[in-house]
């Protein structure tokens, strides 16, 4: 039996699961406030832009988005199998492809800020 290559993705899945467990609920609370339209003045473009323009801010944003994407992608691959979809290779290309696209978009946007 050959050793599996799943550790590449599982490593990102596990790291991402931990990161999203710590940060995502708080992030959602913030966007929920924004969706309510509460305190529109607190979401100033300048303040958020300044954070994203700072090198450490960029690194944090990139890290959170990258790990969230690959965490979700890998778990979605497993979940597809659990729902009875047996075309694992196709599923893997689709979910990892989406994660790669999101990663690429994040890099491009961050470089433009």
């Amino acid at each position: 039996m050959a050793k599996s290559n799943k550790p590449i993705f599982w490593g990102l899945f596990a790291a991402g699961g931990t990161v999203t467990a710590f940060v995502t609920p708080a992030l959602v609370l913030i966007t929920l406030f924004a969706a309510f339209g509460a305190g529109m003045d607190m979401f100033t473009y300048e303040a958020i832009h300044a954070f994203a323009a700072w090198w450490l801010g960029k690194l944090i944003i990139f890290g959170v988005i990258l790990l969230s994407l690959w965490h979700a992608a890998h778990r979605l691959r497993v979940t597809a199998h659990d729902f009875g979809i047996r075309a694992d290779t196709v599923v893997a290309y689709v979910v990892y492809g989406l994660a790669a696209l999101g990663t690429l978009m994040t890099i491009v946007y961050l470089l433009r800020i």
Binding site: M1, A2, K3, S4, K6, P7, W10
Partner: peptide, 12 residues
Amino acid sequence: RQEVVASDEGVW
């Protein structure tokens, strides 16, 4: 053991 344990049919 890893030959079996770390294969696709193993722990993964």
